[in-house]
Amino acid sequence: MGQEEPRYQVVKDFIRKGIAGKQWKEHKRVPSENELVDMCKVSRMTARRALDELTEEGVLYRVQGRGTFVAPKKLHSPLLEIRNIAEEIQNRGAEYSNELLLLQKEVCPPHLLNRFALEEGQQVFHSIMVHKENAKPIQIEQRYVNPNAAPEYLNQDYKSITPNVYLSKVAPLTEAEHEIQAKEADPFMKVTLKLQELEPVLCIDRITWSENILVSFCQLYHPASRFSLTGRFKTQHQLTEL
């Protein structure tokens, strides 16, 4: 007699079957823990484990305070190729453009002081840019830059050169760390990225170093329906900052 399938696996199979059958389509909410308890006749702990594992596998994603949703297939890849967005768009045969919304020197935010090894009151460079493909916004880039690594950051013409290209020249990337998560879009993101109703954003928090100097802390926001991750990986010597 074969071993009985674990109950959490039964719940996972139930959700996967519902997704495959289009019962729950991309970006649609799947049943909550409490709903799964009733639907699958399992404990809440079992339902939570099933949702947690499917989220870790990239089948689902969570939006705080809203629930758990079906992830688009392009979210399944666990690795992200670090690349220059302007070059990427041009390689697709599309037209790249950007809109610079902010470029200034300001007091370093408290949560970044330790990362940049700065004292309270010291300043960093701060920029916000919208990257566009064929005039359609596909990414908001919010970047904090270490003045010690790129002292002329504020003096560049970012219509002809992107922050990525400039930083790559003056402080070549040797190490990068990133975190990817889905977030609920705020009003600024909804308007700027022209998001669909209830569409979340994918946020990439990226930290980059040149040798032992932290160069940049960057937050990249993408419309979930217009962004994909790749599974390609390069060694540190080949990395190019996004």
Rank of each mutant, 00 (worst) to 15 (best):
Q219A: 07
Q122W: 02
L239G: 02
L118Y: 03
V130Q: 01
E197T: 13
Y158P: 00
I138R: 00
G58Q: 01
M45T: 15
L51D: 02
L229Y: 06
V30K: 04
T174E: 00
N34Q: 12
E119H: 08
K41S: 13
L214T: 10
K136W: 08
T192N: 02
P151Q: 12
V37K: 10
C218H: 06
K105M: 07
R29L: 06
L102N: 05
E241L: 05
R232D: 15
I89D: 00
P109R: 06
K105G: 00
L193P: 00
P151I: 04
H126Q: 05
L102Y: 08
Q3S: 01
K25Y: 03
Q9F: 09
A20Q: 13
R29E: 04
A50C: 05
T230W: 12
K74Q: 13
Q156G: 12
I15S: 04
D13P: 09
L36C: 13
E184D: 13
L214K: 05
L113H: 06
E26R: 07
F227R: 13
T46L: 09
L242D: 10
Y166C: 06
F14Y: 15
Q219L: 10
N98T: 01
R62V: 15
V59D: 03
F14L: 11
A171K: 06
T162Q: 05
G93H: 04
M189T: 01
G231E: 02
E197M: 14
S228Y: 08
L112H: 09
E5S: 07
Y221Q: 13
V145Y: 00
V170L: 00
Q123R: 09
K136R: 11
A94E: 05
S160H: 14
E56K: 08
E99H: 06
G65T: 04
D38S: 14
P110E: 05
Q181L: 12
T240S: 08
F217P: 12
S77T: 14
Y166V: 01
T174S: 11
R16P: 03
K234S: 12
Y221L: 07
G93Y: 03
P137L: 01
A182E: 11
E241M: 10
Q9N: 08
E152T: 15
Q9C: 07
S228N: 03
I140L: 03
P151M: 06
E152G: 06
A117R: 14
I85Q: 02
V63I: 14
E197Q: 15
A176R: 01
A94G: 10
D186H: 11
R83K: 12
K12D: 12
K12A: 13
V215I: 01
S127A: 09
R83A: 05
D52G: 07
G67L: 04
T68M: 09
V30H: 03
L103H: 08
P187T: 04
L36E: 11
Q238K: 09
E26L: 09
I207L: 10
C203H: 15
I128F: 04
D157Y: 08
A185N: 02
P187F: 08
E35S: 10
